[in-house]
């Protein structure tokens, strides 16, 4: 793994100096993960593909301005912004936030009846559909934060940089989004264990 990291760093340095081949190699490495991220914000399809492609072109054009420590986080920042822009454009009311204010109280749904344990549902087709449906209903900025955490594995501080907000906002968004998905599952009768 260490040599891979060193190799990655060398590629970033070459790309930063204008080596298009190095940039392509980096982009190929991140292509699928970035598409996955865009597709979960925008829905799978041409829109998400275009968002990633645009993001790569934009990243290449501004590679000289990249000075941060994490090239991967930098790419995610560009892709996340593109994807969120497209969601807002699609809604055609970009100035009206559908998202509830950050200080609104988070409501926890109560389980309707005892059912299977949530932890046993990985791979369950119905659970997958329920999670995807629940995620779709989460406001996109919360959704992006949650995906950056749970799927892409970024730390809160990194997510704050990627989405250009305070760490406190990241914390709130992730929590709201996760509780919303949890509520969708719990109201179907699935429960958590531990108590």
């Amino acid at each position: 793994m260490k040599s891979t990291d060193a190799e990655y760093g060398a590629l970033v340095e070459r790309a930063r100096r204008g080596d298009g081949r190095a940039f392509e190699q980096l982009a190929v490495r991140e292509e699928r993960a970035l598409y996955r991220h865009a597709a979960r914000i925008l829905g799978a399809g041409a829109d998400a593909e275009d968002a990633v492609q645009d993001a790569f072109l934009s990243a290449w054009r501004s590679i000289g301005s990249f000075e941060g420590s994490s090239f991967r986080a930098w790419l995610y920042r560009i892709v996340t912004n593109r994807a969120l822009d497209r969601v807002r454009a699609r809604r055609r009311r970009p100035e009206l936030p559908l998202e509830p204010a950050e200080d609104e109280v988070v409501t926890w749904a109560e389980p309707v009846a005892p059912g299977p344990d949530l932890a046993d549902l990985v791979g369950n087709r119905e659970a997958v559909a329920a999670v995807e449906e629940a995620l779709r209903l989460v406001p996109e900025e919360q959704r992006a934060a949650l995906l950056l955490r749970d799927v892409e594995g970024f730390a809160y501080e990194e997510i704050a940089v990627i989405t250009s907000v305070e760490v406190g906002t990241v914390k709130s968004r992730i929590h709201r989004a996760r509780v919303a998905v949890r509520n969708a599952l719990v109201t179907r009768g699935w429960r958590g264990s531990g108590g």
């Binding site: 392509e24 990985v122 998905v181």
Partner: peptide, 25 residues
């Protein structure tokens, strides 16, 4: 807490969408 942990696990385990074409310019 257990519900949240399981939720995060389920989100991470979602099937991965694949692009239908090359996205790298």
């Amino acid at each position: 807490l257990a519900e949240l942990r399981a939720t995060a696990m389920l989100i991470r385990a979602l099937p991965e969408p694949r692009p239908s074409r090359r996205l790298v310019p």
